[in-house]
């Protein structure tokens, strides 16, 4: 009985999430069918799908192979350490980092945004450079700026900051002016 009830509530929850997927967005529906825990969100008229971290690369592969998403147009990370307010989509467990990828289907002339939550204590996500080679630089930038490690990336090194830089500048706890500005030949404070 108890099991049945639990199952029923699970299914109800699933039904509820499914109802959130509007009929116009078939790609989001396909992602929802395929991956557990995928949540659709309509963000100012743009289709956004929140995915579990483990499905990140698979979702990219699926979008490229089955849904004609020819380009991953952009990838970036958001650090939600100190947000005053945060839009928490129902069904998504918010974590400190969000990896955001904007994909574009040229044949279908439409976009979709994939977001995955990355906790602060385990900042690894699967690399999608094998699916979208154009994300090579973007993932390096995300690593450089936020310290997100993309497993399977061919050359995960710093891209914008110097190789010996310590820290990840775009993290919210990496304050600007942490490193004092020095000028060559500057005698220093008197």
């Amino acid at each position: 009985m108890a099991d049945d009830a639990a199952q029923a509530t699970d299914e109800d929850a699933r039904e509820e999430v499914h109802e959130v997927v509007p009929p116009w967005d078939e790609v989001a529906a396909a992602l929802w069918e395929r991956f557990d825990g995928a949540v659709f969100h309509d963000s100012h008229g743009q289709a956004v799908v929140y995915l579990d971290r483990t499905h990140w690369a698979d979702a990219a592969t699926m979008l490229r192979d089955d849904e004609q998403f020819t380009s991953c147009i952009d990838m970036t990370v958001v650090d939600h350490l100190v947000d005053a307010e945060r839009v928490v989509v129902p069904g998504v467990g918010p974590a400190r980092y969000e990896v955001v990828a904007n994909l574009l289907s040229h044949p279908r002339n439409r976009r979709i945004r994939l977001i995955t939550e990355v906790p602060a204590d385990d900042t690894t996500v699967a690399s999608i450079t094998a699916v979208y080679p154009g994300m090579n630089f973007a993932e390096r930038e995300a690593y450089d700026m936020f310290g997100i490690e993309f497993t399977g990336h061919p050359d995960l090194t710093r891209i914008l900051m110097p190789d010996d830089w310590v820290g990840h500048p775009l993290r919210k706890d990496d304050a600007p002016a942490r490193v004092p500005v020095t000028f060559k030949g500057d005698p220093g404070p008197r």
């Binding site: 963000s43 743009q46 147009i73 005053a84 307010e85 839009v87």
Partner: peptide
């Protein structure tokens, strides 16, 4: 609060 992505065509691309 919210998030959005907007794209336009610059002389160099999107």
């Amino acid at each position: 609060a919210g998030e959005t992505y907007v794209a336009v065509e610059s002389p160099r691309g999107e």
